[in-house]
């Protein structure tokens, strides 16, 4: 079940909850229709390809923790800088830990809820 919020500070926590539940539909509901995600550095995905990449990622049942470091919120657009960590398994089934500093751009929809417009998990190196 997708959970959206009008409080941008809560968005990251709800996203982590949806991600860790393994519910790809719930995760995808937290993106705008024309959102861009760059989960593989240098390879921006949008539309159907982005939606399917979420499904592929969640198949390995990864667990994420995320702590927002900075948030810059204007009327209808926000920039969040987020420290995150994902415990997952690699292609050989071995445990793998990924970490990064995400640069997330959110848009406030007409329904009063924030959604990811741009999700760049390795946006700050």
């Amino acid at each position: 079940m997708a959970q959206l919020t009008g409080d941008v500070e809560k968005h990251t926590a709800l996203y982590v909850e949806a991600f860790n539940s393994g519910d790809a539909d719930a995760v995808n509901a937290m993106y705008t229709e024309d959102a861009v995600a760059v989960w593989e550095p240098g390879v921006p995905l949008t539309g159907r390809a982005r939606i399917e990449s979420v499904e592929q990622w969640l198949a390995a049942k990864p667990k994420m923790t995320a702590t927002p470091r900075h948030s810059f919120v204007t009327g209808d657009t926000a920039l969040l800088i987020v420290d995150w960590k994902i415990d997952t398994t690699d292609a050989n089934g071995e445990p793998e830990q990924l970490t990064g500093v995400g640069v997330d751009v959110l848009r406030l929809g007409e329904d009063g809820n924030w959604r990811y417009a741009i999700d760049d998990p390795f946006g700050e190196k």
């Binding site: 705008t32 024309d34 959102a35 861009v36 751009v105």
Partner: peptide, 11 residues
């Protein structure tokens, strides 16, 4: 540079 509809992120 990533453009998503009416918003863009530029480095």
């Amino acid at each position: 540079s990533y453009v998503a509809g009416d918003v863009a992120l530029i480095g």
